[in-house]
Amino acid sequence: MQYLLLIHADESGWDKMPKSQQEQGMAAYMSYSEALKNAGVLVGANRLQPTSASSTVKFRDGKTTVLNGPYAESKEQLGGYYLIDVADLDECPGAHHGTMEVRPIR
């Protein structure tokens, strides 16, 4: 089964971290990605720009409107994703940083 692992974390929290801690965090993500790759389950992965770079596009009454980024008030934001292919839910790895939402692909 394919699962999309959505990483939700506090963006501002990351920026407030000292450089050494950020580097540690990055290293953890790198080795996590490496482990998924080596296990042969990684389909794709990406980091996302912060939500300040985000826009919302709506199509209403025949008109397209573009708005400033969504849910600025929520505490955790989508920061990146992994797309993996594993046997079942219990094989999905957890996250050390932020919260990992595990969504099966239809």
């Binding site: 089964m1 699962y3 046997a87 079942d88 839910l89 219990d90 595990v102 099966p104 239809r106």
Partner: peptide
């Protein structure tokens, strides 16, 4: 069914 919850003893 849709979340892929396994039927096994952990």
């Amino acid at each position: 069914k849709i979340a892929g919850i396994p039927f096994r003893i952990p």
